[in-house]
């Protein structure tokens, strides 16, 4: 079930319209434009709400994405690299977001540092094809994952603060 906080963050993200994946040529360019517009809006909203927590960019084909996400606890900023590929079956299937540097450090990950999503994520995604995009995957997938796992990993001493 989607909690109030997630619902609120979802409400700030425009829905996408074009159902196209990386194999769809021109339509994919259209979809990519929608993806970027939704992401830009989402980051802007996050900034306004003093909840800025990630940056993403892609290769020029829009098939490989990378960037940073961070989590703030006790005024310390814990930062992680984020990466994922857009699968050929996108947007029917969601991208599998990975934090490679945490691979092997928590049981809440699949191989390669792919985050383990809740049972609610996939049905929710499936019901909202093609309206959900990368911004939604971040808000519904990575955001809640960081909020639950990072404090736990900090407490266990698995994640330690690094001076920048």
């Amino acid at each position: 079930m989607v909690d109030e906080a997630t619902r609120k963050s979802l409400s700030g993200i425009p829905l996408l319209k074009t159902k196209a994946g990386p194999r769809d040529k021109e339509l994919w360019v259209q979809r990519l434009k929608e993806e970027f517009q939704a992401l830009i809006k989402y980051v802007e909203t996050n900034k306004q709400q003093d909840n800025d927590w990630f940056r993403l960019e892609s290769n020029k084909e829009g098939t490989r994405w990378f960037g940073k996400c961070w989590y703030i606890q006790d005024l310390l900023k814990y930062e992680f690299d984020v990466e994922f590929d857009i699968p050929v079956t996108y947007p029917t299937t969601a991208p599998e977001i990975a934090l490679p540097e945490l691979d092997g450090k928590t049981a809440k990950m699949y191989r390669g540092g792919k985050i383990c999503l809740t049972d609610h994520f996939k049905p929710l995604w499936a019901r909202n094809v093609p309206k959900f995009g990368i911004a939604h995957a971040m808000a519904l997938g990575l955001g809640p994952w960081l909020a639950v796992e990072i404090p736990d990993l900090i407490q266990k001493g698995v994640v330690v603060y690094k001076e920048k």
């Binding site: 319209k17 990519l32 939704a38 830009i40 993403l56 960019e57």
Partner: peptide, 23 residues
């Protein structure tokens, strides 16, 4: 129906990518 935020046809993908990168 999706939200009213529709894609501005005049904006190129490159411009959007650059905008995202500069945030």
């Amino acid at each position: 129906e999706g939200s009213s935020d529709s894609v501005d046809a005049n904006v190129s993908l490159e411009e959007l990518m650059a905008q995202m990168k500069s945030m």
